[in-house]
Design a protein around this nucleic acid. Structure first.
Lengths: 244, 244
DNA sequence: CCAAAAGTGTTATTTATACACCCATGT
DNA sequence: ACATGGGTGTATAAATAACACTTTTGG
């Protein structure tokens, strides 16, 4: 009958050379530009998959894995998001950037170098912030790519991207994630265009307006001051009410 | 300009002592017994959390992590499911046991020994198979526990269990997962009882019957021969149509 | 006959879908 | 005045919800 403390002392004193996989976080960073769903891709500078486009990502820092266990998975995802977009955590938070775990990819051989288990996250960047994104320090280049015309990506990143698209397509119907892709104020049509970009279908503007009015009645959104000028009649602007 | 082969030869020739986390799969194995949602728990025999109840799970085999990258995550989950329930893969497959990735838990310090990233899966075992489950070789004991009255579990397993419950509660509304918790043939009421056990609410039997009829019309389910005897009027039996 | 559970029917409310029409603004 | 997009209205079908009722079995 040993105590937990004794057990850990003994555990740590023995050598631990069991092979272990590397763990990374990969990011599917979405935005909507010109009514079109985009994903942020970086061009790989080094082997493997040199020159190919890939999802941004990086290794999870695990300290020495014993006394110092390093950073949380979520923390690693936030850190990578800031690094890869070259946007500070403060900017990301102030602009309501959504980050959420997506799925974990761990097939043997998905990285030719070594066994890698990759925990994928997806992020939603408001269109107002998208133009400010530039390549992080370690990437040759970063760019927004139209999801509807994606080439072959590095590793199994096409599969990861597909999971991401499926997730937001499903989630937008019962969760207010569309607002994380819009500026702080928006019009009915702008919201509809986000829905259309994500779902890849068009919605009747009149019926969508009814859905919008329900959200208004439910307090999910509320009127905002001012008007948005268009080529036709100016439109009312609204804001998302994140703390009802 | 080196080729990928040269790159890998060079990569593997150099030492790689970056600290890496251990990766495990943890299983949330559900069934429904007596109209009540149950989860399979094992009692821990060793430190840490000795004596506490925990979700079954185990380490992912990663080979040497280089030339031999070991087993896929999904494969590890299937292997653990078979080991922990003491049911062969053939039995599991023949009885339509559903296994799906749930979420990955990777907070620093969630295991006191070492940094562990745990990829959680959930499984749905049909009630007809549930009584055949017994403890695997390495567990002191395994037992079905009512989800509605769970004690404090080892590690962060309460959190994992909660994620699992939330997942099936959400998924049952748009996916035919209820059938994986039932025997091959079932009655309308039996299906409703599964819904009620998962959602923790009661459904009007008449309105549920209407939903059932829609599934029948859509070909999701179909009539099966025979009748199920009850204390009242015998009920028609149906079967799930997994290949429409 | 009676309890118990299967099975049917009715009505009202809400939501989804399709489509027609009017309104305000800049050019 | 007119093109453009904002905004409103209407009619139908379908899904949701609450509730009353009938039928078939075992005892």
């Amino acid at each position: 009958m040993t105590s937990l403390e004794d057990f850990l002392q003994d555990y740590w004193s023995r050598p631990h050379d069991h092979p272990r996989p590397s763990v990374t976080v990969d990011l599917v960073i979405f935005t909507v530009i010109d009514c079109d769903l985009k994903v942020l891709l970086i061009q790989r500078r080094d082997h493997p998959c040199k020159g190919q486009w890939a999802l941004p990502g990086g290794f999870v820092e695990v300290g020495d894995a014993f006394q110092d266990q390093g950073e949380d998975l979520d923390t690693a995802a936030h850190r990578e998001l800031a690094e890869e977009t070259a946007l500070s955590p403060e900017i990301l938070h102030a602009n309501n950037v959504h980050l959420e775990q997506l799925y974990t990819f761990g097939k043997a051989g998905r990285d030719p170098r070594i066994r890698v288990v990759s925990v994928a996250y997806y992020a939603l960047v408001p269109s107002s912030l998208a133009p400010l994104v530039r390549a992080g320090d370690d990437a040759a280049s970063a760019a927004w790519h139209s999801v509807s015309s994606i080439q072959t990506l590095a590793f199994d990143h096409n599969q990861i991207l597909q999971k991401g698209v499926e997730r937001i397509q499903g989630k937008i119907d019962y969760s207010p994630i569309a607002f994380n892709l819009l500026p702080q104020t928006f019009t009915v049509t702008e919201l509809r265009e986000v829905y259309e970009a994500i779902k890849g279908q068009s919605y009747d503007h009149s019926n969508f307006r009814r859905r919008f009015k329900r959200m208004l009645a439910d307090g999910i959104i509320q009127p905002a001051p001012g008007k948005r000028l268009t080529t036709g009649k100016p439109a009312s602007v609204y804001r998302f009410r994140n703390t009802p």
